[in-house]
């Protein structure tokens, strides 16, 4: 679905007169592969290069060096630009700054309108997209009257209406409260399972990454760690060295293990911890 090979991205810094004064390397030799239908999480602190990476997948940025293929299409090929953007949709962080329409349904229709989809088909797409994120009953509402979580779900619907194969979500929950966050993640989850859309979720909330098929951890423009959530989170010290959290239950398991209890690394749920401790109890008996 997405193939990235030796990607390098340099931002050009400019002095006060606007002359190039140097470059900052935001992405430094990143290669990765995403299979169709996967749920991917990309973790990393602010400035680790994860948002820059996301914009490459949507052809909003172009490689300084290396290549990005979206469904086989090279993002450097200008003639494929609109096909790429339609194949890989994007949801941004700020819910207010990505809704264009003044009515929910009109915003969802914006993408299909740009693609030149016939009017009746737009209506069909709008309806099914709003249904997919559970926002159909709000179709006539003004976006200004929605909560943050609802706005983000409208944004997701706006992307689905373009019938993408992949959706990149760049910290979609960073500005939301816990219930809004849960709604957005469960919407993303169900699109992945039911519509088989590839999801690339960029986040710094570790709990959101637990359900992913594969996790990439970025630091300083490079992929620092990768693997299944269990593999990545079992390396507690490495994660902490990268200024990232691990889920609290993982951390608790890790501390108990260091204290000599027989608990495996990479505990991801509280039930797993309870089972592991129950095993200990029997051996202690």
């Amino acid at each position: 679905m997405i193939k990235i090979s030796k990607l390098i991205h340099d931002y050009i810094q400019r002095d006060e007169e606007g002359n190039p004064a140097g470059t900052v390397r935001a992405i430094d030799d990143v290669s990765l592969n995403v299979e169709p239908g996967q749920f991917i999480a990309i973790l990393g602190h602010n400035g680790s290069g994860k948002s820059t990476l996301a914009k490459h997948i949507n052809a909003l940025l172009f490689p300084t060096e290396g290549t990005v293929w979206v469904n086989g299409m090279d993002t450097k090929d200008q003639s494929l630009l609109w096909d790429i953007r339609q194949t890989a949709g994007m949801v941004f962080q700020n819910p207010d700054n990505q809704i264009i329409g003044q009515v929910v349904e009109e915003d969802v229709g914006f993408g299909p309108e740009n693609m030149g989809v016939p009017t009746e088909k737009i209506w069909e797409r709008v309806e099914e997209s709003l249904k997919a994120v559970g926002m159909l009953e709000y179709r006539k509402k003004s976006p200004n009257r929605l909560s943050g979580g609802q706005k983000q779900r409208v944004s997701i619907a706006g992307v689905i209406a373009m019938h993408p194969k992949c959706i990149v979500m760049d910290e979609p929950t960073a500005m939301l409260d816990p219930s809004g966050r849960a709604d957005v993640i469960s919407a993303a989850r169900s699109l992945n399972i039911e519509e088989n859309i590839t999801i690339i979720l960029i986040t710094h909330f570790m709990e959101e990454a637990i359900q992913a098929d594969h996790v990439f951890v970025m630091d300083n423009g490079k992929i620092a760690m990768q693997g299944s959530p269990r593999e990545v989170f079992s390396r507690v010290e490495e994660m902490q060295a990268l200024n990232l959290d691990v889920p609290q239950v993982t951390l608790l398991g890790h501390i108990l293990r260091k204290e000599g209890l027989d608990i495996p690394e990479g505990i991801l749920t509280k039930e797993e911890l309870a089972e592991a401790l129950a095993g200990n109890k029997e051996s202690l008996l």
Partner: peptide, 20 residues
């Protein structure tokens, strides 16, 4: 109320439910 206790509260309550 649409809130939640700290994650650790849930973990400890689960352990208790498991008989610890």
């Amino acid at each position: 109320l649409g809130l939640s206790a700290p994650q650790i509260t849930y973990i400890m309550n689960t352990l208790r439910d498991y008989g610890m």
